[in-house]
Each structure stands twice: as structure tokens, then as C-alpha cells.
Design a protein around this nucleic acid. Structure first.
Lengths: 368, 368
DNA sequence: ACCCTCAGAAGGAAGGTTTCTGCATGATCG
DNA sequence: CGATCATGCAGAAACCTTCCTTCTGAGGGT
């Protein structure tokens, strides 16, 4: 070839911040580039002496392999995406915020433990951002069937695992979800056992699977038990609408004597509404809502909540995703159903009804 | 040696879906690679006709530029890190969780709006993860002066902006923080104005700047006012220790008639402790704590909180970081002090003391 | 003495982009 | 009419690593 441009063999021009490259390490150690790569990555056949020597020199030079170059070469970036659908401008949903925060936390831990880092990417973010980051795979929270980003990713062959059953025929590699039907049935039974005669539901207008499955379970339970359904639906992403819906529910002529709210803020919404109507909780109204917020332990009265165990879900989702990325585990789609937990507090335990004064022999302090 | 045949079969998933490269686009469009690159990136001198044509072809082929290649070439990854110091295994601190969640949310939005994505990276995570991801810059939350990761990043010339004044001489490019002293003084004045005679403090044992500045401000206020300081300190990262410390504080012979708690859970901790000692809030004890949790609006009674406005901080931190990355803005370190907000609720407003029965002429419902 | 084997190490080709340089072409101007 | 210049586009280097292939001796078997 033309010997024209071959000049800068070992002279760093100095314009950069002098990050040592593998070349520099090779030169300093008196070996070839290949040997350096092999020594540092534990590959090839090298005597321990060489390996040690190379590592030492690399350390001395403060050598850090270029993530970009490695990614380009190996096709692996060590990055996995965490995608949430958004309403409006904010990257996270409001209603599921405590859930999402916990889930993201667990997912981050799990990813890290296997050497991956997590990138937060709202589904509706600028397309260029999605294009600009090399992802080995993606976790999608509550994917909608129309989600263009997820569809595109799947088309490109990027593994996708979803938290929540994928709506429609979205071809994700695996999903993890709670058994929402069972959870709702459990709550309804719990409320009925506490003495509820007419159980109401505060639900959402959106078509995601969580809302749909929960509502269906409620309706079926009503049919089975022979109770007329009493429910109000509202757009769950609107924080104010919940309070209004709670109020509407308790204003009905066929007012329920127990309510389950599907979304996190429903507990306080319902509590406020109950106060407005002079209803005592739990004496006149039993309350349960689905929430991860610890705040419900400190309301007056404390409110029984259903936890979806987001920690477990976040962990499971990431494990499945990384398995898919690394080719471990089954090639077929995996569906994993995780249990929920009902945290029973005062709001769903009816006190002996005769007297409101004498406490039922239990001291005020909870244990531990 | 022990490298027992790490033979990653080169077909883990087996489905590299022949992503179209820039070469393919060039061939299909009948132009050179250069022209494609220029056309898509809006550079070079090309007539609109060519530009349109190339874009069309690229679209038709579903061409997505390789993020890795672009990063390698340009040195920009479009990724910024979000680093939190950790206690134990969990990636986020417990005590600042609501704060962190809000802050991270705002940071994600701000980054996205400028075309960057956020990577969550605990400071104490495995070193290989740090090395494996190419960051254009990093946000560090509450950096400790001994943090090896941050030091290393700065050494490599990666821009670092911190949320919270950097401890020691950590050479960050900029920082954003609240005016903690002013916030504490404001709270103390507020409590004094509400009738507090002896204000206690629930603080932490750690040496971070938040704790230190707040405590100092308290002590100075006490000296100025002539009140004997009454405080308890506990390890803030231990969730149980807070409850114990709250109890200790209220058990003291010189029991305060008002308390400010520096950490998020202190509100409920103090409330529980007050109940145990039969103290009514706010009649016998005024309460304020620093928290971003909306739950404190629904406790009984609602608790006055100091908000550090994490949204604003997250946004500001990211703006400064990206400015530094892109070379916009001042080259000198920037310090930005953000205001706080005191959300006054029942727990810090002493009712007229004579009667506990008659409400002070205000109806129960707030104005909508 | 010769060939074969194998450890140890090096060479060099991708990998896909951006971008600097440079070559044509046709237009403009002195 | 020739020199200059703007325009439109192409070639190829560089970014840094990984890994497949090849080279070189040295030692051992026949």
C-alpha cells in the first residue's frame, strides 16, 4: 500500500487526554496487541508469567479497554433497557410510581449482579435516543400492543422481556406477571369474610391487562356470589380523576360497604371521600387498595394493601432477559406468574360492631 | 489456566438478523458511503434531492446506524451515568428513596430532552460494569470524598456533576445543592412562631454535607436563641434505628415540644413515638420532617414536610452536566444553590390551646 | 537427521461509522 | 479564453478491540 500515511506508529499526537490504548500497553510490555488482549481477557494460551506481566503494565498505565470498541467488535454492550410507557411528558407513570421505583431498583441490582447496567428509556422518547444506544435487550413494563418501539426492537432481533402480560400478539421472549385474578378473588373473599355485603371496585378505563384482568375477576366474582357489581372507572394516569371517582363511588345510592381500589392513590382518595360522607373506616366502610407505598401503614386508620411484590418481579424479569441474551435457558417463550401479598391492616378488619369504645383487648403497639 | 473452555458457542441466539449497514444503504441508493452519512446527519454539501433520496432508501431498508460504531468514531456515547452511593447491597439508599426516585425521574426527563439516556450505576458496583459502559459524563448523588469511582472518572477526564456539595476536595465540574442552612433556620423559626419553646432535632451520624450543614445550622440557631440543643443522632441508613432514636428523643427528661427530623421516615417514627408517650400532635408536640413522600399529607395528623425539590435539582444537575459535556457554558466549576419548600400541614400548627373540642370556625373541607 | 507437534506469540482482518482530503464538473469572472 | 471557485460526491484513514490464522522454535520420537 502507499506508505504515505503510516507514520504515527508509536507517537501519540497528544491532542487527546492520553487515554492509554491496548497498543500502548503492548508497546510498554514488549508484546503484541493480541497477547495483551488475551492476557487481560483470560483467553489464549499464555504462561502465567506473561499474563502477570501484561496485567501489571496495564495497571501501571491505567489502561481501560474502550467499551465502544469492545461493543463494536463483540456485539455485546452490557446494557439493557428498562422501558416504561408514559402518559404525557414524564418518563414514569404516576399511578404506578412506587411500584415502578421498587421494580427498577430490584432490576438494577439483578442486572448489576450479572455484569449488566440498566438504561432507563421511556417508550415514547425521542426516536434518536433509542437509536443511539446499543442495547443487548430490553425490559418493557406493561407493553401496549401498539408500541412501535417494542415492535421495532423485536424486529431487530433484540430480546425483549415484559413485566406484565403483553397485550395483543406482541412477540416478547418472555414475560412475568402476577396472578391478578387470584389476587382480586383473594381480596374479595377477605372483605366478605370481614363482613362486607356489597363490595365496590375502583378501577381504570385503560385497556392494559392489569386493569382488564382485575375487573373481569371482580365481575365474575360478583356473578358467582350473586352481588350486583358496583364500580367506577377513571383514567388511571390522571391523579385528580381518582379522587373524583372515589367520591362518585361513595355517593351512589347503592353505596358499597367495602371497596377495593386498583391503583396506588386510591387508598387516600377513598379515605378522604369516606371522611366527607362521615363514614368511619373500617366500621362503616372496609378499604383495600393495591399499592407498594409504605405510607399506608401510617394513615388513620392504616389501610390494607395488596403488594404485587415488585422486587421479585424486577429480579425475575432481568434474569429471564439476561438468560435470553446469553442464550442460556429455554429458547421458547417463558411465562412466569409471581404471587402477590395481602398486607392486612386495620382498614379491612371490622371491629366487633356493638361497641365503638372498648378496644378488643389488643394494645396499641404493633409488634416489631 | 482455570479457563475451563469458555467456549461461548458463537450462536447464542443464532438470530443476527443481518442488520442493514451504511454500506448497504449506499449501494441501494447508488451513492457513496460518505454521501449516505452526510445525508442522514445533515452535514456536507448535498442538494436536497440527494438527501431525500438517501433518506428514503435508508428508511426502506430499515437502516439504523450502529450505536457502537458511532460511539467508537465520535467518542460520544449519548449516555450519562447516575451514580448513588450505597449502603449494603441495594443500589439506592433507603433513607433518601423518595427523594432519589423523584430526582432520577427529573434527571431522566432532562437528559432525554437533550438526546441523552441515563444509566443507573451504584458507586460500589462491580468495577467491570463501570469499565464496560462508555459514559459521556456522570451525575453523582452525595459523593463521598473517598469515592474511588468518581476519582477515577475525573482522572479520566469524564465530566462529573454532583447533587450535593462534594465532600473534601473532590474535583467535580459543578454541583447543585439546596441551601440547607437556610432551610433549617426557616423551619426552626416556623416552629418557634407556632409556639415551640424547646425544639429538638433528629439527625444522622454520618458525615455527609447534608447532615453536617443541617446539624450545624441547628446548633447555631440554638446558641443564638439561647436554647439548649436537644438532639439524637442515628445511622440514617438503618431503617430501624430511626424509630429507636425518635423514641429516645421523646423519652428524654428535657423532652422537646417540637421536633425536626432530617430524614424521610422520621415523620412516622416520631408520630409513633408520640403516641406511645401519649403526646398529641400538634397540641403537645409540633412535628416537621424532611421528606418528599406525599404520604405525609394523609397521616393523622398530616405532617409538615420540607421538600428539597428534587425535580428541580435533577433537572439542573443534568443540564450542567450536558453543558460540560458539550463544552457549552462556563469552563469554571459552577455551584448552583436551589431553594427548598416548606409544606405546612397540621403537625406544625398549634391550635388555640384553651379548648380541644370546638373547631376554629373552619369547615372540614379545604378549598378545592 | 528429520519430521511432527505444540507452546507461545504475533499478524491482520474485520466491525460500522465519521470525517478529512481530494477529484471532478460546470459556472463565474477578469 | 483561461483562471478561480463553488458544488457534489467518492476514497480511505482512523476509532480500538477481538479473534482467527499463521509463524517460529524447541523438544521428542523414529
Amino acid at each position: 500500500m502507499t506508505a504515505a500515511g503510516n507514520h504515527q506508529a508509536s507517537r501519540p499526537v497528544g491532542r487527546r487526554l492520553e487515554r492509554a490504548g491496548i497498543r500502548d500497553v503492548a508497546a510498554a510490555a514488549g508484546v503484541s496487541i493480541t497477547t495483551v488482549s488475551d492476557a487481560l481477557n483470560g483467553k489464549g494460551r499464555l504462561p502465567d508469567a506473561t499474563r502477570r506481566h501484561v496485567r501489571e503494565v496495564a495497571d501501571r498505565l491505567g489502561y481501560r479497554p474502550s467499551a465502544a470498541a469492545r461493543t463494536l467488535r463483540t456485539g455485546r454492550s452490557g446494557l439493557i433497557g428498562l422501558t416504561v410507557t408514559t402518559y404525557g411528558e414524564e418518563p414514569f407513570t404516576f399511578t404506578e410510581f412506587a411500584y415502578f421505583a421498587e421494580m427498577a431498583r430490584a432490576a438494577t441490582s439483578a442486572a448489576l449482579a450479572r455484569g449488566y447496567a440498566l438504561v432507563i428509556l421511556p417508550a415514547s422518547s425521542r426516536h434518536d435516543v433509542w437509536g443511539n444506544v446499543a442495547l443487548d435487550g430490553t425490559v418493557v413494563v406493561d407493553p401496549s400492543d401498539q408500541d412501535p418501539v417494542v415492535t421495532e426492537l423485536v424486529r431487530q432481533g433484540v430480546p425483549v422481556v415484559s413485566d406484565g402480560r403483553p397485550a395483543g400478539s406482541l412477540p416478547v421472549h418472555a414475560w412475568v406477571d402476577n396472578d391478578h385474578e387470584e389476587a382480586v378473588l383473594g381480596i374479595l373473599d377477605h372483605l366478605a369474610a370481614a363482613g362486607a355485603r356489597r363490595i365496590g371496585l375502583l378501577t381504570g378505563t385503560s385497556t392494559d391487562t392489569y386493569t382488564r384482568l382485575s375487573t373481569t375477576a371482580y365481575l365474575e366474582w360478583c356473578e358467582r356470589i350473586g352481588q350486583e357489581p358496583v364500580y367506577e372507572a377513571y383514567p388511571a394516569h390522571d391523579p385528580c380523576a381518582g379522587a373524583v371517582a372515589a367520591d362518585r363511588l361513595l355517593a351512589r345510592p347503592d353505596r358499597p360497604d367495602a371497596v377495593y381500589g386498583l391503583f396506588d392513590p386510591n387508598g387516600t382518595d377513598l379515605l378522604a371521600a369516606a371522611r366527607r360522607y362521615g363514614l368511619r373506616v373500617p366500621d362503616d366502610l372496609l378499604l383495600v387498595c393495591c399499592s407498594e407505598s409504605t405510607g399506608y401503614a401510617a394513615t388513620e386508620p392504616p389501610i390494607t394493601t395488596l403488594s404485587l411484590k415488585p422486587r421479585r418481579i424486577g429480579t425475575a424479569v432481568v434474569q429471564l432477559l439476561i438468560d435470553a441474551i446469553e442464550g442460556v435457558g429455554p429458547a421458547h417463550p417463558v411465562q412466569q406468574v409471581m404471587p402477590t401479598e395481602l398486607i392486612i391492616r386495620t382498614s379491612s378488619q371490622r371491629r366487633p360492631h356493638r361497641t365503638t369504645v372498648s378496644p378488643p383487648r389488643t394494645s396499641a403497639r404493633g409488634e416489631g
